[in-house]
Amino acid sequence: MSSAGEPTPGEEREIIEGMRAGDDRAFERMVRAHVGPLRAVALRLLQNPADADDAVQEAFLSAFRNFDSFRADARLKTWLHRIVVNVALQRLRRHKRQIARGAEIVDISELLPRFADNGFPEHFHRPWVQTSEELAARAQTREQVRQMIDKLPDNYRTVLILRDIEELDTAETAELLELTPGTVKVRLHRARQALRNLLERELELTH
């Protein structure tokens, strides 16, 4: 098996069979194959390397203890992803106030579109001067986008991350966050609207 990157389907089968047989080497192979992407997920949610490492360790131990619940038709990557997201969200809820977040947090209500009583916007929108492809092509802009996501309040940031980055659907996101699907949709929409406004302002996207 390669030391980095996803295991091939054959390697994944060997890992699963080894895990079922209680083979220590299979556990190590599973850890080495998946630790990178899982740590990135934990880091995105927790924003702190030490917390992310703890969450990843807890997730792998949980996977080890619960390997019986891994279904044969599932993918290891997807199953582990869900476990680490779950662990990270639990930690985020538990340590909400203790986790040091470097980024300043924005007031979402100030970033939502404003309207007059007659339903017209206070500010009429103009086209952006750059496409999303052009913006995403620059490393500096990619970093700025990540920093802006980090400025959103946790309630909105987690929904945006789970839906638009981790690609979970509304039902999965609602279940993990213990919210109704309706609340997930409202928060996702507001998070996108606020971020749209931040991007437009910070990246000077209109003339």
Partner: peptide, 11 residues
């Protein structure tokens, strides 16, 4: 575009 950017840059 915002959704595309988040998807492209988030990871």
């Amino acid at each position: 575009d915002t959704v595309s950017l988040v998807h492209a840059c988030g990871r």
